[in-house]
């Protein structure tokens, strides 16, 4: 009876998971204002600095091994926080882009489509980067610079501002574009 019991437990866990996720789909539906309030600022420059291998080499040369390991651990933990914030913002942008895809203006819909694609890419990338950063904490000597994530965040930031320009041309958007 051990194997049947295992499958019964797995089946109920699967059922609970499916119900939970399906319920989540409903509760977040259309609640864009609430999602937007969860946006977190990401300092891309600071993130680039944290994962810069030259910076890492510099610290390794100047600091005693023990101190370097401690500092590197702190730096990687901070980088993980940045990645989490970027992934969280990307998740919100996925919802916002999905909403903008319904727009009757084809230019807005196309911009939203691109934003959606890149936000998903960023989120997927973030999931791959976090374990690498944790690994970097355990093995401070190994270079695991996930520089693409900062570039991807740059791209989606430009795209979301572009989308805003297309949706609200009169609001006066960033001169940085």
């Amino acid at each position: 009876m051990i194997i049947p019991t295992i499958f019964v437990v797995l089946a109920f866990l699967g059922l609970l998971l499916i119900l939970y996720i399906a319920k989540g789909h409903h509760s977040t539906a259309g609640n864009l204002d609430q999602l937007a309030s969860q946006l977190r600022s990401v300092d891309v420059d600071a993130f680039r600095n944290l994962i810069d291998h030259r910076e890492q080499d510099y610290l390794r040369e100047r600091l005693p091994a023990n101190e370097f390991r401690g500092i590197q651990r702190e730096r990687m933990l901070a980088a993980v926080e940045y990645v989490r914030a970027a992934a969280s913002n990307a998740a919100i942008l996925i919802r916002l882009a999905e909403a903008a895809r319904q727009n009757s203006d084809p230019a807005v819909a196309q911009a939203a489509d691109k934003l959606l694609d890149n936000a998903i890419r960023l989120r997927l990338y973030a999931f791959r980067v976090v374990p690498r950063l944790y690994f970097g904490m355990l093995m401070p000597g190994v270079s695991l610079a996930p520089i693409d994530l900062a570039d991807a965040y740059d791209t989606i930031t430009r795209q979301v501002v572009m989308l805003g320009c297309l949706q609200y041309p009169t609001r006066g958007m960033s001169s940085a574009l």
Partner: peptide
């Protein structure tokens, strides 16, 4: 629905 004013401001600041 789409980007709200606060969203646009937030992303504009990020871009700047």
């Amino acid at each position: 629905s789409g980007l709200g004013k606060s969203d646009i401001q937030f992303w504009d600041q990020e871009l700047q």
